[in-house]
Design a binder for these strands. Sequence first.
DNA 1: CTTGACTTTGAAGTTACTTCAAGGTTGATC
DNA 2: GATCAACCTTGAAGTAACTTCAAAGTCAAG
Lengths: 136, 136
Amino acid sequence: MFTIAQAARRAGCPASTIRYYERVRLLPSARRGTNGYRYYEVADIERLAFVNRARQLGFSIDAVADLLRLADHPHSPCDGVDTLIATQLHSVEKRIRQLQTLAARLRQLQSACDGEHPIRECGILAALSDTRWNEA
Amino acid sequence: MFTIAQAARRAGCPASTIRYYERVRLLPSARRGTNGYRYYEVADIERLAFVNRARQLGFSIDAVADLLRLADHPHSPCDGVDTLIATQLHSVEKRIRQLQTLAARLRQLQSACDGEHPIRECGILAALSDTRWNEA
DNA sequence: CTTGACTTTGAAGTTACTTCAAGGTTGATC
DNA sequence: GATCAACCTTGAAGTAACTTCAAAGTCAAG
């Protein structure tokens, strides 16, 4: 049995995060000692690590809850899992495209100025102030 | 003079956002009519539009405040502006790299399953449950 | 003069946590 | 046994950038 800090170290997240996951019911209530302390065993820590890995992949808390529910039904078909992964991948890809557009615009702005003149003549602020900016 | 909804339409954001910007002091308090309504003129709307464009470029509220302060001092050198843009560009590029790593992992997970078998045999959940996942 | 669309405010909801304050527990040392 | 650091508990508040809500006042058209 491990205390919350030990479980946290093993799963790779702060103890406060474990308490948070318990509070929002992503994880079941931990067993308690007579002192009120939470105690975890290996299976609990594995579940927590599963959650952390899914979170690192960008899944929302709700999506992780879905994944856990699916993982708990080993006999149902796994296309639900595939769908969740695909949805997540699509949203990540979409975000990448948005950020790439953003980066391109920032680079364009950057090229409008060499930092050597007064702000009055700065091409960057001129571009940001330009009403026609949103077009194009 | 425009009411808040008219200003919002022209600047391309909800009226609630304008009130929010005023509350957090990103924009100065708007002029008020005897009825208590906020009224905006063209210059106010241009400033608001500037803010919206900068926000669309991913600048934080604080960074936008910096940009506005800089823009208000037309005689100082504009290297501060350049620095802000460069910082923002770097953080966007970093985020893109992170997301690309994420997308690659998700695609890898995806290839571990064709959605045709029970969850017990699903390569995706197996991979997510694998203690060795974090290595590699 | 009624109706519907607007406006006001402060407060709470959102996401996923983190941080804090105030207090109890544990284990080692003196 | 006392003390001390390092742990644990809880509920509440802070974070970012808004959005949504409720309750109430205002305005313009018909």
